[in-house]
């Protein structure tokens, strides 16, 4: 295995705060969020881009933090679950059986949050296309789909 020892200084904007960090060139965004900043909401559940448990929003778009190097996102805006407070989608997950063990939940919530913003009135196919990138092993997806519906309803009522 080749070891990369180069260290780079990067600036990020994480959950609205400016951060300056020294990272290895090989450090993933996920590793930096978890190990350097203590933002452990995103999980390393496959580190292969298969499960979506590490999903964060990069400039408002959901990405898998395990597939992105920290040095690639220099200067960019990142939203993790820790930066998401009292949103409709969180409330909807709480009230509609959107989770059980909670391990995939931050990733699902962030992905769904971005989906709701991008497609306030999406159809089932769009929902499926977006959310198939995340795996949940507990709920059988019923509660997650119900939560999405409930959040849409809350948002529609809120904007009236």
């Amino acid at each position: 295995m080749i070891m990369y020892h180069e260290i780079a200084e990067i600036s990020l904007r994480v959950n609205g705060e400016n951060r300056r960090l020294w990272v290895r060139a090989a450090d993933t965004l996920l590793a930096v969020l978890r190990n350097h900043m203590g933002l452990t909401g995103g999980k390393a559940a496959c580190e292969n881009g298969d499960c979506g448990a590490c999903t964060v929003l990069l400039e408002d778009r959901p990405v898998k933090a395990c597939l992105i190097l920290a040095v690639e996102v220099e200067g960019m805006d990142i939203l993790t679950i820790e930066g998401l407070k009292q949103t409709e989608i969180q409330r909807a997950f709480l009230e509609n059986g959107g989770f059980q063990c909670g391990y995939c939940t931050p990733g699902f919530i962030l992905n769904a949050y971005a989906l709701l913003k991008a497609h306030p009135e999406a159809d089932d196919e769009t929902d499926k296309e977006w959310l198939q990138s995340n795996i949940c092993r507990c709920t059988g997806y019923e509660g997650i789909k119900r939560s999405l519906k409930a959040a849409r309803k809350m948002m529609a009522e809120g904007s009236e």
Partner: peptide, 21 residues
Amino acid sequence: IIRKDGIEKINGSIKYVNDYT
């Protein structure tokens, strides 16, 4: 009844063993 671990789970603040320092 809403789950006792619910708020922590939707906020991503619940700690699993690999989340502790």
